[in-house]
Amino acid sequence: MIEVHREICAYCGCCVSVCPEGALELVDAYLDIDMNTCIDCGICVRVCPLGALEAKK
């Protein structure tokens, strides 16, 4: 699963654009992750400009 470190995230939406499953959504000023849709591919974690996302086992 993906954890969002909100104190790092600047809610830019970069991760949302690359999610192949559409599991992420930028809702105003926070990031919403649909854990039922997320396939743990880790692409969002890779591209985050600030390192706000973490893959957790």
Binding site: C14, S17, V18, C19, P20, G22, I43, R46, V47, C48, P49
Partner: peptide, 10 residues
């Protein structure tokens, strides 16, 4: 979906 090698992260 933007292929991840084709997102410029800034």
């Amino acid at each position: 979906t933007v292929p991840f090698r084709e997102i410029e992260t800034c």
